[in-house]
Amino acid sequence: MAEYKRPKSLMPMATGYCPGCLHALATRLVADVIDELGQAENAINVVSVGCSALNLYSWCGDVIGSAHGRAPAVATGVKRCLPERLVFTYQGDGDLAAIGLAEIMSAANRGENFTVVFANNQTYGMTGGQMAPTTLLGQKTTTSRDGRDCLTTGYPMKMCELISVLEAPVFVARYALNTPKGVMDAKKGIKKAFEKQLRGEGFTFIELLTNCPTNWGMNPLDTLEYMNTNTIPYFTPGVFKDKEAEK
């Protein structure tokens, strides 16, 4: 039976995430993979703004905080100067798909040799549950009280699909963290992305579908079912690009 231990890359402290939040699980998966690859001292975590910024305090390897949306630009500067280090950003959907759209698309298009871990919970968690670019149609938020309306706010943005049409990225995949299988698949995906980076293959992008019990106004268990019936049908999990498999 597997032993459940704190990953080396995480501080012996509470993460600060709300009870039932899958951000905590996502962070843990990344830390586990880094441990397994023996990269705890070689990794640099480029933290973004939003709930993901809690990583600044719970991460115990090298960590650098970025401005909102700018983590891929910061990671570009870090990786170009320290090409041997394992560099990754950890970003939420407001950070990555709204204010940081230029930075993520451009870093992906340049084929920067780092990994982006994108936690998509369809809301701005830290600021209190405003509508995100990824908020589902009809989903109620503090800035879309009657539910998101495509006529005035457009449609939930599918980042894996957008990034996978670029030439440079080598691995683009989406996983849902609401089932044990999804969690195990996600871990394999993160590992594959980091291994590709360590081999210098290029830009890798991992989207993790997560929840927000606090701002969705649901108990954690209900969010998992909500993800099954609402999130996953729109944000289809899967591998969108794998340059190795294309060969």
Binding site: R70, A73, G77
Partner: peptide, 25 residues
């Protein structure tokens, strides 16, 4: 290393990342 950024905003943040590594940026 030289990077032509996608914007001024991105460029200064690349400099922020590079400076954090101890390189003169």
């Amino acid at each position: 290393a030289f990077v032509q950024g996608e914007s001024e905003v991105a460029s200064i943040n690349m400099v922020y990342g590079a400076a954090a590594t101890g390189k003169r940026a």
